[in-house]
């Protein structure tokens, strides 16, 4: 039995740009739903009209509280006030490690944790509760590595994309779920407003040619670096003995740094 709060944001599909449940927030909700039953509070700060909110309800969430505010507002204070008003106070605050569709800086959970005076652990993929009011967390690191750590409640965790996939959202529960709207006063996010905004366009890949220890940085190196990403560099061994082949593979892998030294 543990009381948890989940912060859910509205995501944005990378291809269509349509609103959807944010992938890591959905995983946070999945984790919350899989914890032993306690009180679950789901909060969203933003527009209560987004169709993506129903996607969260479709996962089996009975109620979602929306702190209604216009776009470009700073939700930190409003969320903080709402979390502080929860009684009993939740022991765990779960959310995705990065929103998609807003500033996407991943700062909000840190600001909340600092203001609440709670510990924060980012990029979590698994959570087990201990009897003594602490929890064992597993953090996802690069290249499939995992790190375990322990933290005492209350704490904030942000969920990594490698966490278990969220259950599908079902139409029936999504239709039946309740959205409670609370109008809040949120200040304008001045730092965000000061930024220039324009559509993103991909930049050409930065070529790290001639980096320390690398090639000479000449034209040939640049050409190679620009083209080798697409087609193979095309070393070909035809009909070597198995041992020759093995050695070639071994050397190649070692060059790539894939083998344990």
């Amino acid at each position: 039995m543990v009381d948890v709060a989940v912060l859910l944001s509205v995501g944005r599909h990378p291809v269509s740009g349509r609103a959807r449940r944010a992938p890591t927030d959905a995983r946070a909700l999945e984790l919350a739903l899989s914890l032993p039953p306690g009180r679950r509070t789901a909060l969203h700060a933003g527009s209560p009209d987004s169709p993506a909110l129903r996607d969260y309800l479709g996962m089996g969430l009975a109620e979602l509280t929306v702190l209604a505010m216009a776009e470009g507002r700073d939700p930190t204070d409003a969320l903080l006030a709402r979390l502080r008003a929860l009684s009993p106070a939740p022991s765990i605050l779960l959310t995705g490690n990065r929103a998609e569709g807003g500033e996407d800086s991943g700062m909000l959970p840190y600001s909340l944790a600092h203001a609440l005076g709670w510990a924060i652990v980012p990029d979590v993929v698994a959570l087990t509760l201990n009897d003594d009011g602490s929890a064992e967390l597993v953090q996802a690191l690069a290249r499939g590595q995992r790190r375990a750590l322990r933290v005492a409640m209350p704490f904030v965790v942000t969920i990594h994309p490698a966490a278990p996939a969220p259950r599908p959202s079902a139409f029936g529960p999504a239709r039946r779920g309740r959205i409670t709207v609370e109008a809040v006063d949120a200040p304008e996010d001045t730092a965000l407003a000061a930024c220039a905004v324009r559509p993103w366009r991909d930049r050409p890949k930065r070529l790290t040619v001639g980096a320390p220890g690398g090639g000479s940085g000449g034209a040939l190196d640049r050409l190679r670096a620009a083209t080798e990403a697409k087609a193979g560099q095309g070393r070909l061994l035809v009909g070597p003995t198995p041992d020759e082949a093995a050695r070639a593979i071994y050397d190649c892998l070692q060059e790539q740094g894939m083998l344990p030294r």
């Binding site: 944005r12 599909h13 324009r198 993103w200």
Partner: peptide
């Protein structure tokens, strides 16, 4: 990059 990868914020 922001906005789910769709926008560029600069300052």
């Amino acid at each position: 990059r922001a906005g789910g990868g769709s926008r560029e914020l600069s300052c």
